[in-house]
Design a binder for these strands. Structure first.
Length: 269
DNA sequence: TTAAGTGTTGCTCT
DNA sequence: AAGAGCAACACTTA
């Protein structure tokens, strides 16, 4: 689930429920998620610290802790962040819990335990160290940057869109939607797109990601709320293209399944 | 029961 | 050297 739109929703959730609060307790329920840090170390460094800021870069959420640095969260395949009131309302698969004072708890949930929580000194340095490209929704990321980045890769466009070092934030689901909206076949080569196609792709990338955030990415209701021309609700076996009514097809790319409409998204001649 | 799945990393091969 | 392909990670659900 967590691609850029879902992580953006987590960020807003933190802002609405937890930002400004101080950490009164830290419960590590799964050491695996905190890497080299020991639970005692994490506890010592977080206790008493204020959740002062939040940032998102691609699929990472960064929570600013003032002088204590930043908490960097990655959600893997199906992680999430949930605020709750009573300690007893602890969600299932809660791997790390921050107690934030009377009636406020923030849980990092991750059923499959793919993902991680790290404590880092500087957010920008972390982003650079991870080798992340520009965030897909960052206003400073221009179409000309996008065009230059794609031209540098002799690779299929779907893999390029999902490569976090080229653009940060897009995964399997949203890359399918973006390519569908841009009417581009997932196997088109990134460096062979025409200028008009790159322009279209850039605009659709923004529209798709913004729409997903607006419709409450990750929620049950998102599929019903999405614009009617979106492929996402039909992204399944037996799905029908919202544009032409034809059968949705799949192909394998780098071990992932791409869903697309073979009629609306033609391969390169 | 088997397989597939929203992500990333690391390895091999070309 | 870039890029493709695959396994591994861990666990749930169809």
């Amino acid at each position: 689930m967590p691609e850029l739109p879902e992580v953006e929703i987590f960020k807003r959730h933190v802002d609405a429920t937890s930002r400004g609060r101080r950490v009164s307790g830290v419960v590590v329920r799964d050491r695996k998620m905190i890497g080299k840090l020991s639970p005692a170390q994490l506890q010592a460094r977080l206790k008493g610290v204020r959740l002062a800021a939040s940032r998102r870069h691609g699929k990472y959420l960064l929570i600013g802790l003032g002088k204590a640095g930043w908490l960097a969260l990655h959600f893997g395949m199906n992680g999430a962040l949930r605020h709750f009131g009573k300690p007893g309302d602890d969600p299932a698969y809660d791997r790390l819990r921050l107690d934030l004072g009377a009636g406020h708890h923030l849980a990092y949930v991750n059923p499959r335990r793919i993902g991680r929580v790290a404590l880092v000194a500087d957010a920008d340095a972390f982003i650079a160290d991870e080798g992340l490209g520009p965030d897909a929704l960052d206003g400073r990321f221009r179409e000309s940057d996008f065009a230059r980045a794609l031209a540098a890769h002799r690779r299929d466009i779907k893999s390029a869109l999902m490569d976090q070092s080229i653009i940060a934030g897009i995964g399997n689901l949203y890359s399918d939607e973006i390519l569908f909206q841009a009417r581009l076949h997932p196997r088109r080569r990134a460096d062979r797109l025409e200028a008009a196609e790159v322009k279209r792709l850039f605009a659709k990338m923004r529209r798709v990601l913004r729409s997903a955030v607006r419709c409450g990415a990750g929620s049950e209701q998102m599929l019903e709320r999405l614009p009617k021309d979106f492929l996402l609700p039909e992204r399944r076996r037996g799905g029908r293209c919202p544009a032409c009514g034809g059968a949705v097809a799949t192909l394998k790319l780098g071990g992932r399944t791409a869903y697309y409409c073979p009629r609306c998204q033609k391969p390169e001649r």
